[in-house]
């Protein structure tokens, strides 16, 4: 007897949370925005989302099978990428283009670099950028159910003509844009849910949105319009907070958020593009390793010693 006891290193218990549960909560947080997009853009939104999710999960499954790796689709990370990718596409996007986007996101950006946790940039963001580069006109046509073609441009393209009376439109998302960007209220709802369930820290969205608001005021633009239009809300709460491609510490997140805000405003105010969020996130993704290395926490007993030594 007795010789069959298991011997392992401590700790012997783990928390109830898991990667799958975290990703599940992100999916749940995206649901209100999906509903809003169906209301604003019609049933095509749902079909497009279903296609990108199915494509992302399929590519993840197929690649891992092909490479004889364990298939990780149960962790729901490919599902999240699929939903986010769809949210970055206009409702009229041809299905095959969406599938190309899913391939770029999952196979090229995620799996070729080693799978979950090893991608250097947010897969959905790169998928969006690749499609925007390859199929520019398709990605920039924002049809809106029952609205004439002129009004269907993204509000940022015509922001000069928008009065404060348009705030409600921006909040409800009843304007041109891609699926998941238009309804600020549902994005905010999902974001608050993620913060409340401790999936994300409020640091990145708050500093990102705060920086954009301040810079808009300085540049003489309407900060409310800047905050509520384009991909900013979706980007701030769901794309910039991706664990793998954002800094770890609060200090790092602060710098990351400010950097995102500065780049976004620079592109919006001085660039030829209407939209700066996806490029801001991509650029900041690339410097995350440096931010991480420069923003480590003060370790207990070590920082103090240095300070004391400096004082002496």
């Amino acid at each position: 007897m007795g010789n069959k006891l298991i011997v392992t290193a401590a700790p012997h218990i783990t928390s109830g949370d898991s990667t799958q549960k975290i990703m599940g909560r992100v999916c749940l947080a995206l649901c209100p925005t999906l509903v809003a997009s169906i209301i604003v853009f019609g049933i095509n939104s749902l079909i497009l989302t279903a296609i990108t999710v199915a494509a992302c999960v399929f590519f993840e499954w197929a690649y891992c099978k092909l490479m004889k790796r364990e298939v990780p689709i149960a962790d729901l990370s490919a599902t999240v990428t699929g939903i986010l990718l769809a949210f970055n596409l206009p409702a009229t996007m041809p299905w095959w283009m969406a599938i190309v986007g899913a391939f770029i996101a999952i196979v090229i950006i995620k799996q070729l670099f080693g799978g979950l946790g090893y991608n250097f940039a947010n897969p959905a963001i790169v998928g969006r950028i690749a499609l925007a580069m390859g199929f520019t006109s398709r990605m920039a046509s924002y049809p809106l159910k029952g609205v004439d073609a002129l009004a269907s441009a993204t509000p940022l393209a015509v922001s000069g003509e928008l009065g404060s009376g348009e705030y409600v439109t921006l909040l409800l998302g009843n304007h041109g844009g891609v699926l998941g960007e238009t309804c600020a209220i549902t994005i905010l709802l999902g974001g608050i849910y993620l913060i409340a369930t401790k999936v994300i820290s409020p640091m990145i969205p708050v500093t990102y949105l705060g920086t954009v608001a301040v810079l808009s005021l300085i540049a003489g633009k309407d900060p409310v319009v800047q905050l509520l239009s384009g991909g900013l809300m979706l980007g701030a709460f769901f794309m910039a907070t991706d664990y793998v491609t954002s800094p770890t510490t609060d200090k790092g997140k602060l710098i990351f958020g400010i950097g995102l805000g500065v780049i976004t405003c620079a592109i919006r105010f001085f660039g030829t593009m209407n939209e700066g969020v996806s490029f801001a996130i991509l650029l900041m993704n690339l410097v995350v390793p440096y931010i991480d290395a420069l923003t480590r926490q003060d370790k207990l007993g070590i920082a103090k010693k240095k300070k004391e030594a400096a004082a002496k």
């Binding site: 298991i6 392992t8 012997h12 218990i13 783990t14 898991s18 990667t19 975290i22 990780p72 962790d75 990370s77 799978g115 979950l116 946790g117 090893y118 664990y243 793998v244 800094p247 770890t248 510490t249 609060d250 480590r296 926490q297 003060d298 370790k299 207990l300 007993g301």
Partner: peptide
């Protein structure tokens, strides 16, 4: 059943280990 620890999967860089460490280690 309780003695078996769950299987380890890829690090998703959520930073919980870093932010939980009482000593500030990563």
């Amino acid at each position: 059943k309780m003695a078996q620890l769950p299987k380890a999967t890829n690090c998703i860089h959520c930073g919980r280990c870093t932010n939980a460490c009482p000593l500030g280690l990563s």
